[in-house]
């Protein structure tokens, strides 16, 4: 690997200060970043290690909210009884990531901020993500690329926890040189038409510190369903994060967010409106599935994602009320 200095952050402020050194990048578990350094996708002179910030790997209830430090590992997160019970979709999403070894090392913040796994980007093609001005997937091998929200880059957002966090209406705490700001999870992610080089609104010298989850309403149930091209170990081809607030048989409110289909976690507000105040019958679930793929814009080799998405939405809804 290229030589660099590892510097251990004492606290969030210290991390942000250290990140201002020339060519510094931030690292959590390193499960993604070290591979990118080895592959010359990132060539840092300084690695700012966040794992040494005390207390940033904890889950704590603060008033009605749950605060989750960004340095919590995916394994610890997915086994936490409060998360499993009240925020099942997040526990299931964390548990669906990769392999036990990656979940033992990978952090929640790193999972949300991981770079795309498009094979052109990862193989050093001069695409938007590598500082170029072209997306090679448009005329190339695009079977795993976006069917929604693409252009000029057609990557899909790779994080499993991101759709779950948007579905739960989480808030993200971000720290930078001028202090801290809090934004809704949905506002953290940015489409390529906003910035084709990046996937979110983080500035170069900003870090994701923690996320907070609102109290869940009575009758809330949630789940994460992930479709893979093999049985384990890999990113979603399509995934669905669903949070339903139920009153007996009636769905009072729904939040549904897809992974694997767009450059950001893809929220289905139209589907949510169809479900609100209704009993989820097989007919309604089918209608929801149809609405989920309205406006889909597949490329030459990823048309299969359209029926896959339609059926995933329909099936997941029916399983949730079965």
């Amino acid at each position: 690997m290229k030589s660099f200095a590892n510097v251990n952050a004492r606290d969030v402020k210290d991390a942000v200060n250290k990140l201002r050194e020339p060519n510094a990048v931030v690292v959590g578990g390193g499960s993604d970043l070290l591979g990118m350094v080895k592959d010359h996708l990132v060539q840092p002179d300084v690695l700012v290690n966040l794992k040494t910030i005390r207390g940033l790997d904890q889950i704590a209830a603060k008033g009605p909210e749950i605060h989750i430090g960004g340095q919590i590992t995916l394994d610890t997160l997915s086994h936490n009884s409060m998360i499993r019970g009240d925020y099942t979709v997040l526990a299931e999403a964390a548990e669906s990531v990769a392999t036990p070894q990656i979940r033992n090392a990978g952090t929640l913040a790193g999972n949300v901020c991981q770079r795309p796994w498009c094979w052109y980007y990862r193989n050093n093609f001069p695409c938007f993500k590598n500082g170029g001005s072209k997306c090679f997937s448009i005329t190339g091998e695009n079977q795993f690329h976006a069917i929604f929200g693409g252009g000029p880059s057609f990557i899909v957002h790779p994080s499993d926890t991101a759709p779950a966090l948007v579905a739960l209406d989480a808030k993200f705490r971000v720290a930078g040189p001028s202090g801290e700001r809090t934004l809704a999870a949905a506002d953290f992610f940015a489409l390529p038409k906003v910035n084709a080089a990046r996937e979110n609104v983080l500035g170069k010298d900003e870090i994701l510190v923690s996320v907070s989850l609102p109290k869940t309403a009575k009758g809330t149930r949630s789940t994460y369903h992930k479709v893979l091209d093999r049985e384990a170990w890999t990113h979603a081809v399509v995934s669905a994060a669903m949070v339903l607030e139920m009153d007996q048989q009636v769905c009072k409110r729904a939040r549904i967010v897809l992974g694997g289909v767009a450059p950001i976690p893809w929220r289905l507000q139209k589907v949510e409106a169809i479900l609100a105040g209704q009993q989820i019958t097989p007919e309604l679930a089918a209608k929801a599935g149809e609405a989920a793929v309205e406006g889909a814009n597949p490329l030459a080799k990823n048309r299969y994602k359209v029926p896959l998405t339609r059926n995933l939405v329909r099936r997941t809804l029916l399983e949730m009320v079965a």
């Binding site: 590892n6 390193g30 690695l47 794992k51």
Partner: peptide
């Protein structure tokens, strides 16, 4: 006690 990939951990950590 937990399994990790030792190729994906820096020794300094």
């Amino acid at each position: 006690g937990k399994s990790v990939y030792s190729c994906s951990q820096l020794a300094v950590w």
